[in-house]
Amino acid sequence: MSDNFTEDKISNSTGWLAKKINSSKIIWLLSLICVFLFVAEFFVHRHAEMGVDEYIGFYGAYGLIGSIFLVFLSHQIRKLLKRPEDFYDD
């Protein structure tokens, strides 16, 4: 029952975040911040701890790639592990 309920409401929802344009705006905003942070790195004294992090943009790149990697791997794991809701019948 509650499933239908969710589906129905999506179309006529009026939330700010639900609007396509707004979600694009958020992505633009985030991208802007990221670019800013990337550029900022040229002006800040870098203090590398591990060697690999002295490359410019290491943290950003690692965050981006690592996250995407995690999500894609999750997809695969999900295929493997997902079961119907009432799988454990106890």
């Binding site: 985030l30 991208s31 990221c34 790195e41 943290y59 950003g60 965050g63």
Partner: peptide
């Protein structure tokens, strides 16, 4: 950087 790129 780490956080915002992940968020992105």
């Amino acid at each position: 950087q780490l956080l915002f790129f992940s968020a992105l």
